[in-house]
Nucleic acid binder design. Structure first.
Lengths: 365, 365
DNA sequence: ACTCCCATTGAAAACGTTTTTATTTTGCGC
DNA sequence: GCGCAAAATAAAAACGTTTTCAATGGGAGT
C-alpha cells in the first residue's frame, strides 16, 4: 500500500495569514486545566454519566461553554471506533452521457441532512455504479469501518446488499423493499397501489390498451408496478397488456423511443403509465413526432422527479410524493437504528398523492 | 456540551451473526508482528520514505498486501490532524415546496467523486440554506477541522465565504467566480460569452425585443449574463432591453409567470433568453397559456440542468455543458490544492457548447 | 473510635497512527 | 581488527478521547 498524498503540513502555498494568533482549539486537557477536574471526570460529566455530581457537571459544562470546547471528532472516533458518518450510496451509471434521469438524489440528501441536524453524524456520499458495485462498496464500508451506517436505494427483488448488511449486523436503512421476507429498516412507496390507481384512472377514461413504461425489471419496485398494472386491468375485466410493458432506463430518450415503437405495432396503446417525469416527457415528444396528441393520454407515477409535469403540453396527471419527506425518514430511521431501536419498528410505506391535471378521458385533454 | 448519542456498542438489536470469527482488522502492530519490523519502520515504508531500504519496503508491502492491511483512517486522522474529507456545500433553499430547481448537484457530486477516486479523500455533503448559512458552515468547518477542504458554488459578486477562507488559509475550490480581484482555485462557465451568444442568435433571427430570465442578482453569474446580454444588443445597434430583464429563482413557475407578465406589457419581447431548462419550460408553458407559439422564440443557457430541452415543444436551442465535467475539475483542483499547488494555476473557465434545435428565426419554429 | 461501604474523583491504559529521537548495524579507511 | 561515520531500524512520545480500575473522602454502623 502506498500513500502518495502529501500532508497539510507539507503544503507550501497555504500560508496562514494569522500565524501568531494560532490559538489551538481547546482540548479536554485545556478544560481540565481550567476547571481543575481530571479529564476522566470531564469526559463523564459531558456525557451525563450518573457517577458524577450534578454540581460538578454544571461547573464543567459552564466552563466548556465558556472556552468553547467541543469534543474532537478525531479523538472520539479513534477511541470509540465510530466515525460519525452516514454513508449514502448514490447511484450514478458509469456512462452518464448526454441524458440523465438520476435527478432525485439532491432531495434525498437534503432530507437526510435535515434529519441528521443536531446529531453528530454527517453525510458521506459514495458514488456507486450499480447494485453490484453497491455491494462492493458496502463490504468495504463494513470491513474498514468507514461509516457507522448506510443508506441506499435501487433495491432489487433479491438484494444482496441487504442480505450482506443484515448478516454483518451493520446499521442500514433502505429506500425500497426487496421481496425476500427479511426484517430491516426501510422507507418505501406503495408502488403497487400507485400503478393500480394510475392504470385504473386511464381505464375509467375509456382506454383499453395501456402501456407501462417501467424501469429495469431487476428493481423491486418495477415488479410492484407490474403487479398493480395487471391487477387494474384484470379487475376491470380487460385483457392483459403485458405486450405493452417496456423496461429501460429512466431517460426521456427511452420514453420517446418506447412511445414511437409502441404506436407502431398492431392495436397500439392509447394510454401510457410512465415511471417518472423524464420518460413521460419523452413519451409526449414521441407521440408528437408520430402526429398524435388527441386520443392518447399519459399518466405519470412520478415520486422521484422534478415535478415539472404541470408545465408539459398537455399538463400531466401525476402521483406526486415529495421525496424530501422520504429522505427525512431515512435519516431519522437510521439515527434510531443507531440508537438501538429494533428494525421492525422502523418501516414506513408512503402513498403518493394524486395530482389531477388532465381529464384522462379518451379523446379529451 | 452534552452528547446524548449512544455508542454502537450499546446497540442491542445489532446482533453480530458471526461473533466467533471476530478477526479484528489488522493494524500496524499486526503487521509489525508478522514482519518483525517496528511499527515506525512500517509506517515509513508504506509512505515510501527514503530512509528505509528498498528491500525492506518490498518485504513490508508484500506482507501488508497478504494480510490485507490498510491504514486506519481514524488513527491517521488523529495523528495528522487531517480528516480526509472534502466538504461540499450543497445549497438547498429552506422551503423547497412543490417545485425545485436545484437539480444539478447530483452530477456535481458525481464528478467530484470521480476525481477523488483513488485518493483517500471522501465527500462529505453539508446542506446550506443560502450564502450566509454557507459562511457559517464554512466557519465551523475551519474552526473544528471538520474537513480538509471545501467546495461550494452559488458565488456572489462579493462573496464573504471566499474572503473568509482565503484569510484563514483553508483549501477550497469554487464553482463560479466572485467579482473581487482575488486569487483562488475555481471552475467557472463563461456566462458573459454564453449570454452574448444566445442573445446574438435571437437577434440574428430577427428579434429586437428580447427578455432575459435571470437568477437573483446577488449571484455573480447573473451579472455576467446581464453583461453579455447588453453587449449583444449594443453591438447590434439595438436599443437596450433592460426593462425585459427579470430575476428570480430557477423554477418553472418563475419562468411561466415571467413570460405571461412580460407578454402583457407594451412592446413585449418576442425572444427569451432563459437561465436554465426549468425556467425555459415555464416560459414555454406561459407562452402557450397566452396563446403564443409562433413568432416567439426562446433560447436556453442551460449548463446546470437535466438536458431535457430536446423533448420540449418546440425543442429548444441550448448552450449545454456537462456539469459532471465541472465536478471532476472541482475535485481534481481541490486535490492539487491540498497537495500544495498554488491557487493561481487552478482556474478554468468553460465555454458551453451550442446545441441547435430550432431555427430561432422570428416566425419560424 | 474503628471499619466498612458508598460516592466521587483521579490515574492510567488503550485506540492506531506519525514523527522525533535514540539505538543498532553496516560499510569503509586505516 | 578498530574506529567512525553513515545508514537503517527501533523506541517512545504524541494526537484527544473513553473507560477501566484504583484512590480518596466522608458517613453510617458497630
Amino acid at each position: 500500500m502506498r500513500l502518495p498524498w502529501k500532508r497539510a503540513s507539507d503544503i507550501v502555498g497555504m500560508k496562514k495569514h494569522k500565524p501568531v494568533a494560532t490559538t489551538r482549539r481547546p482540548t479536554i486537557k485545556t478544560l481540565s486545566g481550567v476547571t481543575g477536574f481530571s479529564i476522566a471526570t470531564i469526559s463523564k460529566a459531558l456525557h451525563d454519566s450518573p457517577v458524577v455530581t450534578q454540581e460538578t457537571k454544571d461547573l464543567i459544562r459552564k466552563a466548556a461553554a465558556e472556552i468553547g470546547y467541543e469534543a474532537s471528532m478525531r479523538g472520539m472516533s479513534l477511541r470509540t471506533g465510530l466515525t460519525y458518518q452516514i454513508a449514502v450510496l448514490m447511484p450514478v451509471p458509469a456512462e452518464i452521457g448526454f441524458e440523465w434521469g438520476g435527478v432525485e438524489y439532491t432531495q434525498i440528501l437534503s432530507g437526510i441532512s435535515q434529519a441528521l441536524e443536531g446529531s453528530p453524524y454527517r453525510i458521506a456520499v459514495h458514488i456507486v455504479r450499480d447494485a453490484d458495485d453497491g455491494l462492493a462498496v458496502a463490504r468495504r464500508i463494513v470491513a474498514q469501518g468507514i461509516a457507522d451506517g448506510v443508506i441506499f436505494s435501487g433495491i432489487r427483488a433479491r438484494d444482496e446488499r441487504i442480505e450482506f448488511l443484515l448478516e454483518s449486523g451493520f446499521a442500514f436503512v433502505t429506500l425500497g423493499r426487496c421481496r425476500s421476507p427479511l426484517e430491516y429498516a426501510h422507507v418505501d412507496v406503495d408502488n403497487d397501489w400507485a400503478a393500480h390507481a394510475a392504470t385504473k384512472r386511464l381505464i375509467e377514461g375509456g382506454h383499453r390498451r395501456i402501456a407501462l413504461i417501467n424501469p429495469e425489471p431487476e428493481l423491486s419496485y418495477a415488479l410492484d408496478r407490474i403487479d398493480g398494472f395487471r391487477r387494474a386491468l384484470a379487475s376491470s375485466g380487460l385483457p392483459g397488456c403485458d405486450d405493452l410493458i417496456v423496461a429501460g432506463d429512466l431517460t426521456a430518450f427511452f420514453g420517446k423511443s418506447s412511445a414511437i415503437g409502441l404506436r407502431g405495432i398492431a392495436d397500439p396503446p392509447t394510454g401510457f403509465v410512465c415511471v417518472n417525469e423524464s420518460t413521460a416527457l419523452g413519451v409526449l415528444a414521441g407521440l408528437r413526432e408520430v402526429g398524435l396528441t388527441v386520443g392518447v393520454d399519459a399518466a405519470v407515477i412520478a415520486y422521484d422527479d422534478i415535478n415539472a409535469s404541470a408545465y408539459f403540453a398537455p399538463p400531466l396527471t401525476t402521483f406526486y410524493l415529495p421525496i424530501e419527506h422520504l429522505g427525512r425518514r431515512l435519516g431519522s430511521f437510521l439515527l434510531r437504528r443507531l440508537a438501538g431501536e429494533a428494525p421492525a419498528a422502523l418501516a414506513e410505506v408512503f402513498r403518493p398523492e394524486l395530482v389531477v391535471r388532465q381529464t384522462d378521458r379518451l379523446g379529451g385533454g
